[in-house]
Design a protein around this nucleic acid. Structure first.
Lengths: 216, 216
DNA sequence: ATCTGTGAACCGGTTCACAGCC
DNA sequence: GGCTGTGAACCGGTTCACAGAT
C-alpha cells in the first residue's frame, strides 16, 4: 500500500487525470487555509466538477491516501499530490517574447506563489532588451541558451513569440535540455520524443465558445 | 448530401472535434494565403497533429465537403467550417477586469482579426475606470449590464477578475443573456444550463508540464 | 489510381456497484 | 454506518478498412 513507484510506471496516466489532480490541489490548499483537516471524495469532487468515484479513481492510480469511513486528511493529500506532480521543489519559468502576453505573464504573480518562478524574459528586439518588467529586465534572445543551461532540468519554457518564430525558439530551448514547453504562439510545434508541449490558444477557446452558442 | 442541419442536431459533437475544426480552420486560412486551392485530409491532418481518418470523420459529422479522388477545395472548406462554428458574423468580446491579463488581452490583436472584437473592458476600481487601453477606455463595472444588453446573443464574456469576484461577475453577465464565458480566474464557476464556460488556467498548464517532466 | 465518407472494431476513460476497512 | 478502493460494465472517441465517387 502507498506504493508510489510501481503504479505510475506501470500504466500511463491520462492527461485528464493529471489536470484534475491540479484542480484538487488548488481546492485542497484553499480548504486547508479555511481550517479543515479532513475531506471526503464527495466534497473534493465538487471542486473539480466531477464525481466522487472519479476522485477516488484518480487518486488510486498513485496509492491509497484515504481512510475508509473517514475520508482524506487534507494536509497529507496536499503533500501526496505535490509529490505526484513533482511540485516539491521550485520550477523555473523562462518566458521568450516580451510582447503583450509575455510581459503580462511576467508581471502576473498567479503562479509565482505555486512553485513556479519566472527566472527570465527574453526578446530579440534590441529596443526591448534592457527594459524593466516588474523586477526583471528583458534579456537578449541570444542569452537564452547560456541562461537556461544554469537551471538544469526544472525549467519550463513559455513561448510568446510570433507564430513564424516559434518553432525556431523551441528548437533552441530543446537543444539546451528543456523538456517542457508552454506555447502561446498560434503555430503547430514539433518536438522530439521526451519533450512535452502544451498549447494555449485564445482564438481556439473563443471559437469553441462560438460553436457552443451557435449550436444550442 | 451537404445537409448542414440534421447531422448537427442529431448527435452531439465531441469537444475534441470542435477544437480540431478550429485548428483546421487556422491552417486552411494560412494554406489558402500561400496560394493552394486544394488540400487532402492527409495534409490537413499534419496541421492538427492528428490522422487523415480523424479529419475525414470530424468533417463527416457536418456533411460531405470533399471530392473523392481529389480532396477538398480550400476556400469551400474554410467557408464550411466558418459556418459550422458560427463565425460568419462578428462576435463581441467583453473583458471584465482590467488587471494584467485583462489589459493584455485587450491590447492583443490576435483574435480581433479572426472575427472577435473587444467591445469593452470593465473594472470596479475607480482608479482604473477612465484610463485608456489601446483604443478603449476602461468602463465602470456598473455599466456592464446596460452595455452587454446592446450586443444581443453574439457576446462572449472574458473573466479576468480575482477568484473571489468571479462567480458574482458571471452571475451578472449570465443574467443579461451572455451564454459564453471564458474564465481566466482560478475559481470553479457554476452556470445554468445553456451557458458554456471554458477555463484557461496558467497554473494548471504549468503543473501538467511539471508532472510530465517528473514522470518521464 | 486516388482520396473521400463511413460503418465496425477497438481502446481507454468514466461510471457503477460493491467489497473492504474504519 | 460511513466512506474508500477497485474490478467490471459502460460509453464514446479514435482507428481501421473498405466501399464509393472522380
Amino acid at each position: 500500500m502507498n506504493d508510489f513507484t510501481s503504479p505510475r510506471t506501470l500504466k500511463t496516466i491520462a492527461e485528464s487525470t493529471v489536470r484534475r489532480l491540479s484542480l484538487y490541489l488548488r481546492f485542497l490548499e484553499e480548504y486547508s487555509s479555511r481550517g479543515f483537516t479532513t475531506i471526503s471524495s464527495e466534497v473534493l469532487a465538487q471542486s473539480g466538477e466531477t464525481t466522487s468515484a472519479q476522485v477516488r479513481k484518480d487518486l488510486s492510480f498513485f496509492g491509497s491516501f484515504g481512510k475508509r469511513g473517514l475520508g482524506y486528511r487534507v494536509d497529507d493529500l496536499i503533500s501526496a499530490i505535490r509529490g505526484i506532480m513533482g511540485l516539491e521543489e521550485n520550477w523555473s519559468v523562462v518566458i521568450v517574447g516580451a510582447g503583450k502576453i509575455g510581459a503580462a505573464l511576467t508581471r502576473h504573480q498567479g503562479f509565482t506563489t505555486r512553485g513556479f518562478t519566472v527566472a527570465g524574459i527574453y526578446d530579440s528586439d534590441p529596443a526591448k532588451v534592457g527594459t524593466a518588467i516588474d523586477t526583471l529586465t528583458v534579456r537578449a534572445d541570444s542569452d537564452l541558451e547560456r541562461d537556461i543551461s544554469k537551471h538544469g532540468q526544472r525549467v519550463i519554457a513559455v513561448i510568446c513569440v510570433p507564430a513564424s518564430a516559434a518553432q525556431g525558439i523551441v528548437n533552441r530551448v530543446v537543444g539546451v535540455g528543456v523538456r517542457a514547453v508552454l506555447n502561446f504562439a498560434t503555430a503547430p510545434i514539433s518536438v522530439p520524443d521526451g519533450v512535452t508541449v502544451r498549447h494555449v490558444n485564445m482564438a481556439t477557446e473563443l471559437e469553441i465558445l462560438a460553436y457552443a452558442v451557435t449550436n444550442r
